[in-house]
Design a protein around this nucleic acid. Structure first.
Lengths: 332, 332
DNA sequence: GCCCCTCTTTGGACCGTTCCAGAACCTGTC
DNA sequence: GACAGGTTCTGGAACGGTCCAAAGAGGGGC
């Protein structure tokens, strides 16, 4: 009792398998009555084309692989949404893989996707091992989305403008009268850009000496510990700008624990506008990266690659906006 | 410049393609020197077996489809982890699909997975349209994980014991001296079971008249609104048990807004032990569903189905545990 | 009636694997 | 040196689609 094949449909409709193939793909070379007969037969048998056979023959899978670095930090959800909407409209399906899940096996996290011969690859966020991308990029179009890691030649990058976003936050805090402002920094390209832009903005406002920068690992725990350190200094900052929302949440906890009220005694800002920042209980001032737009652009990039246009190693930046919520206020 | 095929490897190693196939799959029928020659040739050419061709020939894809209902609520992350560990150990890959993303197209969200001829399907959480599963279950082994929706015949179910979990929460609150306890209820099987068990436990402790139940849509917004309603009653409850963590977060916001301190004036408990509940800033008392274990069991179910054993429509329940954190305390 | 042209339809090759029956190659025995 | 019996290796047939060259059907003009 195996699933019906195109030959079964052909037999039932009384035509050749070639005609079934033509009819099912909506060719206008087929006489209407035959087309209807084929469609009816397919319907009655519950026929579904076999994707493996099709991609073997077509030499393409109509599938785009999406490599996520960590499902736990849900900042990428909107990005996927944007990506999917455009890919879907072009008859492509999306295959998700979690780099963290496959990491333990020692092989490249993209391997399963490459075995499946995906037509393109979207790498979302910062990868554990960006070097491995070089090989991959030679075989299949690759787009980096949401992170500005240095890309191998020929790989397009779509991401938010981290420098602009960090500047928005810094200027927002300075505008509120804060002078002593701390930055919980992160790693990778994202961490570096946000940090540099924060420092530059402080300098431009003559506050170079008031800027405090402490590194963190971009987790809640890291944000917490870093903030405890920051707030224990004699010259305590009145505002903290965290490299991402998760670290900002850690900062909130630290403030709370040390008896400081947010935003009355301490202002806190994050980055990414994750769903956590939008929780009323958190209501974190943060930067919105227009992730949906990033996803759409990444999709467009890939589509262009398929047509032989793209792949020029372009870097596209989207313009982030500041989401002012409840964790920032005028300096005490 | 197409990727090398098994024939290219055969030519380079000076053997037939059949032998390459044998050698690459680790057969012990191959003389060591030939095996090494094949492996070297494959390595040099950067050969990767074509998954489409293989599954066409093998009549199986070595792939399990995982249908998620919503990536936004990250309670399923541990579940995936458990699922993946066992599947991976058995040479199976995991393919994620988001039911919500594909919903807009009107087709069944499992369609892309079925076109790919996945060997099995794991449905994670409550589906928008459970009826559609009936058809699918006839074609391919299906396991429902993490939700106790009524399953079509032959579909196995693995989930946490919601009744037990809800009882744990109710008894915890009662033990803390709370009498007037509210439940923010949800929908679906999960919502019904947790609610019933809450009510039964209250009754068993002679508190049937003190139990207040209000429905919600299991979102943060819903939890917020429901709690505002609850706390505006003349006979205000001193504890709130929410159907899930997200709704509990909404409850926290409502309490905060109405000037009630948690847990001093109001105790709040959730369900699922999501990463949000673990945030220090939230530190929510909640029920841990042992999701990792649920994932492993779901994987085992599928593996049994592949061997013709399972598929008996069994229901397996795991034993949840109570995570007591900072949002519950003795009654005021 | 014949030829040509266009519109439909068809058989067969091909995509890259696995699987299987049988060929080729050893090794030892008489 | 022939033969048996085991171990290695190979060619060709699947698997289920797409694609293409060519065959068939119809219609119009002579």
């Amino acid at each position: 009792m195996r699933p019906p094949t195109i030959r079964d449909v052909a037999e039932r409709a009384g035509v050749s398998k070639s005609l079934v193939s033509l009819a099912l793909r909506g060719s206008d070379q087929v006489r209407p009555e035959k087309r209807d007969a084929v469609l009816r037969a397919a319907q009655e048998l519950g026929y579904r084309p076999n994707a493996a056979a099709r991609s073997l023959s077509e030499q393409r899978t109509r599938t785009v692989g999406v490599l996520l670095n960590d499902l736990r930090n849900p900042w990428f959800v909107d990005l996927l949404d944007g990506l999917n909407s455009l890919l879907h409209a072009n008859g492509l399906r999306m295959l998700l893989a979690d780099a963290r899940l496959n990491r333990r096996t020692g092989q490249d996290p993209a391997d399963p996707l490459l075995d499946l011969r995906v037509d393109g690859l979207v790498v979302v966020g910062t990868l554990p091992d960006p070097a491995a991308l070089g090989d991959v990029a030679g075989r299949v179009p690759v787009v980096l989305a949401g992170s500005r890691e240095p890309a191998p030649p020929g790989v397009d990058v779509v991401a938010g403008d981290d420098e602009r976003g960090a500047r928005l936050v810094a200027e927002h805090l300075i505008g509120l009268g804060h002078r002593r402002i701390a930055h919980i920094a992160g790693y990778g390209a994202v961490g570096r850009l946000r940090r540099r832009s924060f420092e530059a903005t402080m300098r431009r406002h003559g506050l170079a000496d008031e800027a405090v920068v402490e590194p963190s690992d971009m987790t809640e725990e890291g944000g917490y510990r870093t903030t405890v350190r920051l707030l224990s200094r004699p010259d305590r900052p009145t505002a903290v700008f965290a490299v991402n929302d998760i670290a900002a949440i850690g900062a909130l906890s630290a403030a709370e624990e040390l008896g400081l009220r947010v935003p009355h005694d301490l202002s806190v800002a994050g980055y990414d506008n994750t769903s956590i920042a939008r929780l009323r209980h958190v209501w974190l001032t943060t930067v919105d990266n227009t992730s949906h737009d990033i996803g759409r652009r990444a999709a467009r990039c890939l589509l262009e690659c398929f047509e032989g246009v793209g792949g020029a190693g372009r870097v596209q930046l989207t313009t982030p906006t500041l989401e002012i919520r409840g964790t920032t206020a005028t300096a005490p």
